[in-house]
Amino acid sequence: MQESAELRIEGAAKRFGEVAALDGVSLQVARGELLTILGPSGSGKTTLLKVVAGFEKPDAGWVKIDGVEITALPPARRDIGMVFQNYALFPHLTVERNVAFPLEMRNVAKPEIVRRVAEALALVELAGYEQRLPRQLSGGQQQRVALARAIVFNPRLLLLDEPFGALDRKLRETMQLEVRRLQRRLGLTTIFITHDQEEALVLSDRVAVMNKGTIQQIATTTEIYERPANDFVADFVGESNIFHGTMSAPGEVTLEGGRTLKVRSDKSAGAKVGVLMRPERFDTGGANLFTGDVIESVYLGTSFKLRLACAGGLELLVRQPARGPLPATGARIEVGIDPKAIHVF
């Protein structure tokens, strides 16, 4: 069995006319790792995927698999399994023939093909569906066929291009976990592309957040969430309260509106900083207290989501455990946040 590989991209750039789809992207994916590339549409993530798969040639930079450059190699010779957004199953071939396709292309012997197709179909729990045509399958089943087809030939790398976009929420969650399980079990080096930050957090070892053709931050999921590198990452991943200000004293930030916050940061005095407070990190008390009027309140089952208008024009998004009655609009409440829970960047 072929070993899963390590992928390196260095300085990849690609322009389409005036637009830089990729503007010097470098990253590394370790053997067996699942890296998510997260970004809004137009951020360059799909172009990056195409560069890895070989459908686009970068203007500059290189791609290496296990230290061997593949930048100029045609897609057919890269040994990369890929699942497309709409699965791209061959509509005229049965499930069995779809999954056998990459093996046939590699001139694998007939009995071997039969064995490995059965194995792959069992892996995605589709045994018994061999003779169906793609259009006779549900979306989730088509997804599994696409997955089986992408892994049946033991690719060195698995690429998943927004594969869950077309599924409903429940099915999506099931499939996410299933893909995760499969990927771990096979130890497949995987790049997963999505614009859905929640999905990114569920699935990944590490996440690379992309915007405007560059990688904004590449880190573990907790790192990305708790300590985003900039406004974009903070804003794109999860709900957030972001303010800007200056370090007025060690451990103290003065926001643009004049309000001071106690924080934990070793940034030197006078530095311009950004401040991130996650809505769920607010409590009833703490070192930093805010009093505000509820201008919006939503009941979310396990929590309340409140929007508060505070003194100095500050507007806060706060999540509180759903205990007691839902605060009414117009009510004045007090919340606090601990300096530890404030991220300064």
Binding site: G54, D79, G81, M82, Q85, A88, F90, M105
Partner: peptide, 27 residues
């Protein structure tokens, strides 16, 4: 024909010749 289908075949290791016979022609 969905271009993704052709891309998929290519990515799965099909040569241009085989893409023609196995994908374009039947479809």
């Amino acid at each position: 024909l969905d271009p993704a289908i052709v891309a998929a075949a290519e990515g799965l290791g099909a040569s241009s010749w085989r893409i023609f016979w196995r994908i374009y022609l039947p479809l």
